[in-house]
Amino acid sequence: MKPKVAFFDFTGCEGCQLDALNLDAQDLIDLLNGIDIVNFREVMTERSDNYEIAFVEGSITTEGEIERVKRIREQAKIVVALGACACIGGVNCLKNHVPMEEALRIVYGKDAKYYNTIPARPADAVIKVDYYVRGCPPSTSELVKVIKALLLNKKPDIPNYPVCVECKKAGNICVYEKGQTCLGPVTRAGCNAICITSGRYCWGCRGLVDEPNIQSQKDILNKYGLTAEQVIEKFKIYDTCSEVLK
């Protein structure tokens, strides 16, 4: 009996779902041999509320979304957070830096009165989440890795060490050695340090490791010339810095 799998989107760009489909043909066939997809708004019209595994994408930003994600939790045996917004709050948390009324006004202007919003939060702020597919967007291989682990009933091999490990394995020259700054030392690896390898730095889209040394990371950012405000400005995009600055 193939497990029934459903994909649900909350507040986000839906890029994670889009990326999930980015498999080559044989992989897609192999995947569909292992699971039944019963609900996936972005690719199919059929809908079913009979599923065992639910992928939730996006962060929770309205009261209505809280109720909806709770209902999904009741139905599903396993809930997987898909992507940075669902896993750590992500880009939507940018609005948490201003009062909610102001956020509504900035976004909707004179129509603000027709909308409601609450501070953005990750799925696990509302419900229990069993597994995480991290990243913005998550790599297709990571999604596949988590699905395979679910099918094999084993823990997915997602590291609990910082990006530095994979960055060094990639043979990169440290961003700090070039005089710049990076959240690699506290961010969970698993991305193969793709941003640094491509010449940028780590924004922390995969969230923190289990035991980040926040104080030391703060001291280092400071030593490399960033004030607390500059740290927010540079790293607030995925909300990882709110932890760093607590």
Binding site: C164, V186, P212, S216
Partner: peptide, 9 residues
């Protein structure tokens, strides 16, 4: 080791 990031570098 108080400032160690356990980053493995």
């Amino acid at each position: 080791s108080a400032t160690c990031l356990s980053c493995g570098s």
